[in-house]
């Protein structure tokens, strides 16, 4: 399977980031995995990595909802302001724990690639790859 050039993990939970990095590495999904601890850091990374056509702009962003400084919803609002060309190349998938009923409704109205309950595992990664990138993990 051809690896994605870059995946961005956005979560304030360092352990979750560590485990997700480990998972993606083991599954051989990405050439590079970037980590941001909140929405603002994620925006900053996108600015750096998506400026030039040769830069390593993330193809996939795995986004947590509840974060300090800038949460997942605020990040998505700011993300909408980015140039369309940049946005088209990026798939955003939200990762949530159990959602408060009012948040479920909010998430469903968002223009994102989908949302999954935590924790991330092999099956969920495979589904994301199939749906958005037309790829499939090799049989384990």
């Amino acid at each position: 399977m051809q690896k994605l050039a870059c995946v961005l993990l956005v979560d304030d939970d360092a352990t979750a980031n560590y485990l997700n990095q480990l998972l993606l590495k083991r599954l051989g999904v990405a050439e590079q995995v970037l980590v941001a601890l909140n929405g603002q850091e994620a925006l900053d990374l996108l600015h750096v990595h998506c400026q030039t056509p040769f830069a390593t702009c993330p193809a996939l962003v795995l986004l947590d909802v509840k974060m300090p400084v800038m949460d997942g919803f605020a990040f998505l609002e700011a993300y909408e302001e980015l140039p369309a060309a940049q946005r088209q190349a990026i798939t955003v998938v939200m990762l949530t724990t159990s959602l408060h009923p009012r948040d479920v409704e909010r998430v469903q109205q968002l223009k994102i690639g989908g949302f999954f309950n935590k924790p991330l595992n092999r099956e969920k990664v495979d589904e994301i790859l199939k749906t958005h990138f037309g790829r499939q993990l090799p049989e384990a």
Partner: peptide
């Protein structure tokens, strides 16, 4: 509580 406990327990399971 149910929400906030979910993340650490799934971390422990992952670890």
């Amino acid at each position: 509580a149910s929400h906030d406990l979910k993340a650490p327990i799934s971390n422990i399971e992952g670890l």
